[in-house]
Design a protein around this nucleic acid. Structure first.
Length: 924
RNA sequence: GCCGAAGUGGCGGAACUGGUAGACGCGCUACGUUCAGGGCGUAGUGGGGGUAUCCCCAUGGGGGUUCGAGUCCCCCCUUCGGCACCA
């Protein structure tokens, strides 16, 4: 097998050779140097010449960020290895598709993860924080088709650029563990997994109707075709095609996926619900209805208790009996016409809930097994062949769809369930089906049973008579993994005329994706046209054979990449079980909600397979899941030129091209098509990574949508400048604090007050990060501490006089500054490192332990107690903490304003909440 | 239609187990700064009334529980998200 580097070179040589026109799509210019440059300089504009000379420059984020990124890289600051002595923490963000450049969604996602990783390192955890590339996929082929760039070249160029962007954001990844799915050292293990699944009957080939997206020129899994549209091109409806394809048997794990899913306490409720809905378990029975002409018709129902109310039956138009039953009857022509019409109707249109019920009588009758009455068999649009048996018993009194159908075609409605506490429900005047539970009526020997007991009793009877049995149905289907695409993992299977389907032997892995290929975006799998790839020898008989030319769904890659990160350079097997054992499960997974049923369901399935293969002990990959909100911005639209970029609109809100006023649209997810995007590169040049990070954390809690605001970014930048000045403006104070000791007595109020602010901030920030990820309020607490520091400095004598003052002042100041800088570090790591160094520290701030709040120092001494009269605030008392209740009552009743409010009234009651408030209940 | 989440100043958002609604930031206003601009600093900033001590109203709307409700309960409205003929 070629090595990683070897293959890369090979691809690049190939692409240079084959390049037409542009050499590369990614002649991306270096980030523009903003003319405004390091804005922090302005802070010094009016300072004295003396200061300008002796002080360092202002907050020069470009220099600082480059400096610390280089230091982290040189020191391999974020490289980790297993260490049983320390608690581990695996922090993972969903890896990106290398589409070209990172977007603000990535910035937000990865900033959240980075704060978690950096914070937990400072709390003493051994933190695994890796990053990689979801590098196979359709857009690379699109680029190849449109621009003549080889998918490998395009992908690897994009990765190189995006990696540089992630580094410039200061994210603390262990890059030694980087995985790139499109390289054989990764995808060979996809093939290895496929072979293991094949051995266990969990991979199989089947002919069936499948989803086809014309723009992808490929089939899709059900999950990727949700709602009848392609997940990548939501404007493209998927078509149905009858094809022979490879499937993974996710349904073999469905009960486990369901049961374990309910136990995922660290997942958002809505994701669990979406997965539960997707799996769509329903419990009921399969029942054979005898046909009057002989034979039987099997149906699935979740309501065996309503069996006596079945007054007709309905077949899906594709049901094999539909045409057959009508043959020879007067309905034959009508049924044939109806079935033909349904075949032509677009499937998503036909299955739209809003579509009217439509059907036709087959001319045949079945026998209700309980009532033994003949009932007519119909064919209708609303019954789906893919679900259950493709046929239903219709109980119009207790199923709304059946009810509507019965009313439209004048079919009988027979009430067999009375709602609890009522016996008045009557079929004739019903306007809607009663779908709830109740008591069985008109059901012969079952009369009087409650629905639940009735279901059991009917099932027992059916099983005794051998005309039915209990059954469970699921909405979820097996995972279709074949793709008619080039840029994916070749499916390691060979077709031999003599031996049939033959798996590629493990020793022949990887089946390498051949570099020489023509991407035409039509006419099936590109690999099918690469003869050197297709033609091979059968591993079993040695005779001429053909390779499978489809590749795997790229969701296979992402189904186990989190396992690979634990042992990314393992060459003998997909992962090292010992390393997986140390790191798994992922403690915190962070990504977008759009993968609620796609990636997150597949990954859970794959993890269970890996467990059964002995590669991991865990059955669930992600203990905690955070689904971050979208990054939004208002869009602008020019009546002449359509959507406009922010830069194409001037300050007065006019289009820079034509001068017409633009229409400001609503705030919505940033997207290229709406042009309401901001470019991370421009922000990096203008404000630096720390400001971007700080703003995207401060503007909204992580799980909510974030509205991008240029003014808000300014605010974050101002805050960092403020802290910079705070530390940098009075170095003599910090120097003077060194070696000093706290004096013995009670310090002055200014010192107590600053220490109180410091320890309150430590408590608040720590709680906000521990309990839930309340980054926005944690940053607010840092801003408050900065405010307290400014107020403290204002009270000090100017110049060097302060340095000669009492040591407590200097110590309190140093304590506050150090706490502020340390707590700032996870959010704005570069500036924190730089300030930490300027405080005289030689070691990285990330080797610093997180500060501990001293509760006794944080405690407020004087309290303001609110005095209410009948629930309204009428006065305030300043009292020392712990003032006895009796004294509080007396003070409250004596308060000037309170006296006015209770004068002439009787005080009925006094509610005292210690150290909080007093409410005086007074009558008139 | 069903299920879920959420509605708080001009804006983004705070508010622990019911206990001072509006932290923090943005914006805005005034003032300061040897002040062109920008930057920085100080003060103010939910609405209404009053010269003022102060008063009234206010967390989508309406009821309720409670000494006390943004927070708990019921009904309604709106927005967003998910599911949507799944038998």
């Amino acid at each position: 097998m070629p090595g990683r580097g070897e293959l890369l070179i090979w691809f690049l040589r190939w692409s240079r050779k084959n390049q037409t026109g542009k050499d590369s799509l990614h002649q991306v210019p270096p980030p523009p140097l903003c003319e405004r440059g390091a804005r922090g300089d302005f802070g010094w504009g009016t300072r004295s010449e003396e200061r300008r000379v002796c002080m360092p420059r202002g907050y020069d984020f470009q220099r600082i960020e480059a400096k610390w990124q280089a230091q982290w890289e040189a020191a391999e600051a974020f490289a980790v290895r297993e260490d049983p002595a320390r608690p581990k923490y695996y922090c993972l963000e969903m890896y990106p598709y290398p589409s070209g450049k990172i977007h603000m969604g990535h910035v937000r996602n990865y900033t959240i993860g980075d704060v978690v990783a950096r914070y937990l390192r400072m709390r003493g955890y051994n933190v695994l924080h890796p990053m990689g590339w979801d590098a196979f996929g359709f857009p690379a082929e699109n680029a190849a088709f449109e621009h003549g760039v080889h998918p490998a070249r395009w992908t690897l160029d994009n990765i190189a650029y995006m990696k540089s962007q992630l580094k410039r954001m200061g994210f603390s990844y262990d890059w030694a563990r980087e995985v790139t799915c499109c390289l054989p050292d990764y995808y060979r293990w996809n093939q290895w997994f496929f072979l293991r699944l094949l051995e266990r009957g969990l991979a199989y080939r089947k002919q069936s109707p499948v989803n086809w997206c014309d723009r992808c020129q490929s089939v899709l899994s059900n999950e990727q075709a949700e709602g009848g549209v392609c997940w990548r091109h939501t404007e493209t409806p998927v078509a149905q095609k009858e094809l022979s394809q490879w499937f993974l048997r996710i349904t073999a794990y469905v009960e486990e996926l369901l049961a374990d899913g309910e136990k995922l306490a660290g997942w958002p409720e809505r994701v669990r619900v979406m997965q539960r809905n997707w799996i769509g378990k329903s419990v009921g029975a399969e029942v054979d209805f005898a046909l009057q002409r002989g034979g039987s018709l099997r149906i699935f129902t979740t309501r065996p208790d309503t069996l006596c109310g079945a007054t007709f039956m309905v077949l899906a138009p594709e049901h094999p009996l539909a045409l057959e039953l009508s043959r020879g009857t007067s309905q034959a022509e009508a049924v044939a016409a109806f079935v033909a019409r349904m075949r032509q109707t677009d499937r998503s249109l036909r299955t739209d809930a809003a579509a009217e019920k439509d059907g036709v009588f087959t001319g045949a009758q079945a026998i209700n097994p309980l009532t033994e009455e003949p009932i007519p068999i119909w064919v209708a649009n609303f019954v789906l062949m893919e679900y259950g048996t493709g046929a239903i018993m219709a109980v119009p009194a207790h199923d709304q769809r059946d009810f509507e159908f019965a009313r439209k075609y004048g079919l009988p409605i027979r009430l067999v369930i009375q709602p609890d506490g009522s016996d008045s429900l009557d079929a004739a005047p019903m306007e809607a089906a009663y779908e709830g539970e109740g008591r069985m009526v008109h059901s012969g020997r079952f009369d009087g049973l409650a629905s639940q007991a009735g279901k059991e009793a009917v099932c027992d009877a059916l099983e005794r008579q051998r005309i039915g049995q209990r059954a469970v149905n699921y909405r979820i289907r097996d995972w279709l993994v074949s793709r008619q695409r080039y840029w994916g993992t070749p499916i390691p299977v060979i077709y031999c005329d003599a031996c049939g389907i033959v798996p590629v032997p493990d020793r022949d892995l990887p089946v390498i994706l051949p570099p020489d290929v023509e991407i035409t975006m039509s006419g099936g799998s590109p690999l099918a046209r690469v003869e050197t790839f297709v033609k091979t020898a059968c591993p079993r008989c040695g005779g001429p054979a053909r390779r499978e030319t489809d590749t795997m769904d790229t969701f296979v890659d992402s189904s186990w990449y989190f396992l690979r990160f634990t042992s990314a350079r393992e060459t003998a097997r997909p992962v090292d079980p010992a390393k997986v054992g140390y790191w798994m499960p992922v403690d915190q997974y962070i990504g977008g909600i759009e993968h609620a049923v796609l990636h997150l369901l597949y990954a859970r399935f794959f993890t269970k397979v890996c467990r059964d293969l002995g590669l991991t002990a865990v059955g669930e990959p992600f203990s905690n899941l955070l689904t971050q909100g979208m990054v939004c911005k208002e869009s602008s639209r020019c009546p002449e030129h359509g959507y406009r970029l922010p830069a194409e609109v001037d300050k007065a809100g006019r289009c820079t091209t034509c001068g017409l006023p633009v229409e400001v649209g609503r705030t919505e997810k940033m997207s290229k098509s709406k042009k309401n995007v901001v470019d991370p590169d421009e922000l990096l040049a203008e404000y630096g990574a720390d400001t971007i990070r700080l703003f995207s954390l401060f503007a909204a809690p992580p799980e909510k949508d974030l509205e991008w605001s240029d003014d808000g970014v300014q605010g974050a930048f101002r805050f960092l400048n403020r802290i910079w000045r705070l530390v940098d403006e009075r170095p003599e104070l910090l120097r003077a604090a060194e070696g000093k000791r706290w004096s013995a007595g009670q310090p002055e109020e200014a010192v107590r007050s600053l220490r109180r602010a410091t320890h309150q901030a430590i408590g608040k920030v720590t709680r906000d990060l521990e309990d839930a990820f309340h980054f926005n309020t944690a940053i607010a607490a840092l801003m408050e501490l900065a405010g307290a520091l400014v107020r403290f400095l204002d009270q000090l004598p100017p110049g060097s006089a302060a340095a000669d003052g009492p040591p407590d002042r200097l110590l309190a100041f140093a304590e506050a500054v150090r706490a502020l800088v340390v707590m700032l570090a996870p959010f704005a790591p570069h500036v924190a490192e730089e300030l930490w160094e300027s405080l005289g520290e030689s070691e990285s701030i990330f080797r610093q332990r997180w500060p501990e709040a001293d509760a006794s120092l944080a405690m407020e001494e004087a309290l303001e107690i609110v005095v209410q009269v009948n629930g309204k605030v009428r006065g305030r008392l300043q009292v020392p903490r712990g003032t006895p209740e009796a004294a509080l009552r007396r003070l409250a009743l004596e308060e000037r304003r309170v006296r006015q409010w209770i004068e002439g009234r009787t005080v009925h009651k006094l509610v005292v909440v210690p150290d909080k408030l007093i409410n005086i209940v007074a009558g008139s």
